[in-house]
């Protein structure tokens, strides 16, 4: 009676640990190992897009931290289940025990999650407050969601007209070398390393102004002006997509932000919103999160 049970226990433990660790490692490798998109999704990608702002960097850190915890918990539960299923299957353990209480273990499994959650909550709150707090803003832009496109204005700048950012259809997108359903015919242009305040609102249905690489998602609600901010630390073109259901063209109102050097931006402003140098225009044409120089 004794020996087979012992053997089962050992085998079950080995299998369970193997499966648990395997799952954990697989999840982490799968999760963190993938190719990341910068400013736009990558083909078959399975992880967060790369960070282009400090907020997104922190967001990635917090996400990864939570991701470790939840992968660990999932792997742990899975391993425990596998162990139990092998060790206590009818054949291996014909006579069930009758235990139905154990205060010590019940306390443990209440306290342990509480502690884990505290570990999660603290950095998570820090991220939340960092994300919310507007630092000294250097400039402001307004993004207005229309059914169905985005329009941008620069309240501080008199000479820049409202930019109406319409999506490109498949043929135009191909012609301009931009990704279809992400590229627009008129981008929002902002300088690098600048604190930009974004005011978001809508004139009709709700929309949501989203740029994944910036860690920004802010609903555009009629009658309400929401604000958020970003500080792009890299030059390049960054794409996003409307993220609040707004009717039939919900999938067809992308967001395109061109982050250019400060000098380039100054020239762009001086030129009433037209590019003079080819670098910036190349940025536009590259249609990716990298500048021409980086490619």
């Amino acid at each position: 009676m004794k020996s087979p049970t012992n053997k089962t226990t050992i085998i079950a433990a080995i299998i369970a640990v193997a499966i648990g660790v395997g799952t954990f490692v697989a999840l982490i490798v799968l999760g963190l190992g993938g190719e990341r998109g910068m400013g736009q999704p990558v083909d078959g990608g399975y992880f967060l897009q790369d960070a282009a702002t400090p907020v997104m960097e922190d967001l990635t850190t917090v996400h990864n931290m939570v991701f470790y915890w939840i992968s660990g918990i999932t792997a742990f539960v899975m391993a425990l289940m596998v162990y139990i299923m092998i060790r206590f299957r009818e054949k291996a353990n014909p006579v069930p025990s009758k235990t139905s209480h154990n205060t010590a273990i019940e306390v443990v499994w209440t306290i342990a999650p509480v502690l884990i959650l505290l570990f999660i909550a603290v950095p998570s709150m820090q991220l939340l407050y960092f994300q919310d707090k507007l630092p000294e803003t250097d400039m402001t832009i307004k993004a207005v969601g229309n059914t169905w496109n985005w329009s941008y204005t620069y309240p501080d700048l008199e000479n820049i007209e409202e930019i109406i950012s319409n999506p490109l259809d498949e043929v135009q997108a191909k012609a301009q070398g931009k990704p279809y359903l992400l590229g627009t015919d008129a981008q929002l242009v902002v300088p690098v390393d600048t604190n930009v305040k974004v005011l978001v609102t809508s004139i009709n249905n709700m929309h949501s102004w989203t740029v994944p690489s910036f860690g920004i998602k802010m609903d555009a609600v009629p009658g309400i002006i929401n604000e958020t901010w970003f500080r792009a630390t890299r030059e390049g073109v960054f794409y996003g997509q409307c993220s609040e259901i707004c009717g039939i063209k919900h999938y067809y109102m992308p967001i395109e932000v061109n982050v250019v050097s400060k000098a380039e931006y100054a020239r762009w402003v001086a030129n009433d919103g037209a590019f003079t140098s080819s670098v910036a225009q190349n940025n536009t044409l590259m249609g990716s999160g990298q500048t021409a120089a980086q490619k």
Binding site: V42, F47, Q49, H250
Partner: peptide, 25 residues
Amino acid sequence: FPQHFLGLNGMPRRYVDYPEEFAIW
């Protein structure tokens, strides 16, 4: 399960059509 990947890669909900980067998953 693959829908987690889509979400992390940035695919929004309630989209009838999507950029081809999301096609595999």
